[in-house]
Write a protein that binds this DNA or RNA. Structure first.
Length: 612
RNA sequence: GCGCCAAUAGCUCAGUUGGAUAGAGCAACAGCCUUCUAAGCUGUGGGUCAGAGGUUCGAAUCCUCUUUGGCGUACCA
């Protein structure tokens, strides 16, 4: 199974309609109900039993490929055998029978080959959607799919030996987006970060600093703290090349650290402080935040204790050299070390402790780890170990794996220095956005050029990173991401800005329209039908992205809505529409689109801009 | 070797529960600014959905095998 996370409460398809009924869904359900009833009656009349029909219930509802074919499609293939009738014929029969009934919903039935299609009553749908968007505002689209569920989302999890890079940015984008999407589906979400501040790799930068640092500080060097520490981590690698034996020193230092050596601890605190200050700044710039921080230095001992307890209870075993192991034969895996022979902790050990601490702190219904797919094995083992230790909530742990981020030139390799630094990238994108604003002569219109450029950079970055399915590896092309035309974040932001501009223009003349009611029958263009339908299905997009933990469902939707809208307002005047009722109706539609844009942007980390 | 994952247009990506003629963007070419921001809109060309079988009324989608690529299989994280 790829990235799919199975929520115990996400239910199956059959249950989906029970959670809540939305506009489009309501339409679908009511039409399905009458068509199913008619199939049942027809089967009973013909065969004396309804079985032929009911075995294929619930009747599938689809979206016709073209709007000329209607708004809902009911494929009838499945009934062909049971009715001994071509589905084309059955569609005709059903249409004829239903046209004689006086209790079908408003709308129009069409046959389209083997499909029975429905053109729904658009005026009614538009009224409902308009009312609902106006009433719910920024919460339009929210669902109760995960109401009252507590979900902890772990993401980012930087090491304190180097600054963030592009890979972290994908992680952060997914983490923030998933959290927002889960919230929109009614969950109570706690975003947590785990600072990986201990271990051999941390000792490496410390050792290099001790040897080469000469007391350098972020202040004295003018470097951001995380970059300064990173510099020494790289230095260690070079040093190690000359003298491979120094790895031993790092191992010894880790042991000293675990023993509480004051000298080591002092340096550790100093350098960790530098890194975390730098990382926090990056978070601030890129709109990342957490409700709670965990530090591995705080939780690893708990993990160690639990592992030792596991040895007592016989879940784990001790080798002759004193190392502690678990045999994973029962899940068809090999053996795994839980404690080194010198007694120090490993990655797995600390994650055991952290998970237990978290469940005690904030009992969750689900904990989602947003971590690269290269660690799939690690999480498999972790969840199994926790299960073996007797924690019933081990089944509620999920690994949301995401693929690697590559560059057009190829893979990022730290050894070859091709890793894209997060701060550098953000600055580069901001710079490009700024140039574009200047070239277009929009400085005055946007007001704060710096802020706007950063917002555009962020929109570009998040959209690009989230538009691909998390599970897949992706190629990040900075130049393409910031491009203002095409399928990009800035293009979407531009649409939002254009609409905002229209709203400002309308406000000047708003009084002239204050007495004119919204008349949905004015919206008769095919494009308007499509827009109303899309707005009506937004809650379903929120559901889908929450169910699959897939932000790209939202980005796809946003882009489609955006294209539809730009085509529409390019071809049809809104504020200068021929009649006042039409202006009012079209402007109301525009406002609905704007609201959905705002709400959907928030789910995928695209800052909304009033003007660009 | 074994395990997990992927493969859709030249490139980057979508593709709903198996359903109608597989869609976008970029790149290329051709149009559209006295008209709510041209950061836009429209059109043209571009496909053996990696390959071969199978299931099905129907497969990019499900199953099997093959090929290619990525990742993992550490007393690293």
């Amino acid at each position: 199974m790829p990235c799919c996370v199975h929520f115990p409460y996400s239910g199956g398809r059959a249950r989906r309609t029970r959670w809540r009924v939305w506009n489009m869904q309501q339409m679908r359900d009511s039409w399905r109900a009458v068509i199913e009833r008619e199939l049942t009656r027809y089967a009973t009349e013909t065969f004396g039993t309804a079985q032929a029909a009911e075995s294929a219930f619930p009747l599938a509802v689809q979206k016709p490929p073209k709007s000329e074919l209607g708004d809902l499609a009911f494929p009838l293939f499945v009934f062909a055998k049971a009715f001994r009738m071509a589905p084309q014929k059955l569609a005709q029969v059903l249409k004829d029978r239903l046209s004689l009934c006086d209790d079908v919903p408003k709308g129009e039935l069409l046959t389209a080959g083997p499909y029975l299609n429905v053109r729904v009553d658009m005026a009614e749908l538009a009224n409902r959607v308009n009312e609902q968007v106006a009433r719910m505002g920024s919460s339009y689209g929210n669902t109760d799919l995960m109401a009252s569920k507590r979900v902890m989302v772990e993401f980012s999890c930087p090491n304190t030996n180097k600054p963030l890079h592009l890979g972290h940015m994908r992680n952060d984008a997914i983490g923030e987006s998933i959290s927002a999407i889960l919230k929109a589906n009614g969950a109570e979400v706690l975003k947590v970060n785990l600072i990986n501040n201990r271990g051999v790799h941390i000792c490496k930068s410390m050792l290099a600093y001790q040897k080469f640092g000469n007391g350098e500080t972020p202040e004295s060097s003018g470097m951001k703290g995380d970059h300064l520490v990173g510099k020494y981590y790289v230095k260690f690698a070079q040093w190690e090349k000359e003298d491979p034996s120094i790895v031993q020193l790092a191992q010894e230092m880790l042991k000293k650290w675990e023993a509480g050596d004051p000298e080591v601890l002092r340096l550790w605190e100093l350098m960790n402080g530098w890194t975390l200050a730098g990382v926090s700044e990056t978070y601030r710039n890129t709109g990342i935040s957490f409700d709670r921080y965990y530090y591995e230095s705080d939780t690893y001992t708990l993990g160690k204790d639990k592992v030792l307890a596991g040895v007592e209870s016989g879940v784990f075993y001790r080798e002759e050299d004193d190392s502690v192991w678990i045999d994973l034969a029962d899940i068809n895996l090999d053996k795994k070390v839980l404690l080194r022979k010198d007694g120090t902790s490993l990655y797995l050990t600390q994650d055991i402790g952290t998970a237990i601490a978290r469940h005690e702190d904030w009992p969750f219904d689900s904990l989602i780890y947003v971590v690269a797919s290269e660690q799939t094995y690690h999480f498999k083992v972790l969840f199994h170990v926790l299960d073996k230790l007797g924690y019933a909530w081990a089944k509620d742990l999920h690994h949301l794996a995401y693929g690697m981020v590559n560059l057009p030139e190829g893979k990022m390799k730290s050894r070859e220095g091709t890793v894209v630094d997060a701060d550098d990238l953000f600055a580069q994108l901001t710079e490009l956005a700024m140039q574009e604003i200047k070239e277009k002569g929009r400085e005055e219109a946007v007001g704060d050029v710096r802020n706007t450029s950063e917002a555009i950079a962020l929109g570009a970055l998040n959209y690009f990173l989230l538009q691909a399915n998390p599970m897949k590896d992706m190629v990040f092309n900075p130049a393409e991401s910031i491009s203002f035309n095409g399928n990009t974040g800035p293009y979407l932001q531009y649409m939002g800005a254009r609409i905002s501009s229209m709203v400002r223009k309308f406000e000047v003349m708003a009084e002239d329209f204050s007495d004119i009611p919204f008349d949905s029958t004015q919206l008769s263009l095919p494009e308007e039908r499509e827009l109303v339908k899309m707005i009506a299905t937004f809650p379903e997009v929120v559901t889908e992205s929450g169910r699959d933990l897939n932000p790209s469902a939202v980005t796809s939707y946003l882009y489609e809505l955006s294209r539809l809208f730009s085509r529409y307002y390019h071809d049809h005047p809104v504020l200068k529409a021929p009649s006042a009722p039409l202006v009012k109706a079209r402007f109301s539609l525009v406002c609905m689109v704007l609201q959905v844009f705002r709400n959907a942007y928030a789910l995928v980390g695209i800052p909304f801009l009033e003007s660009m």
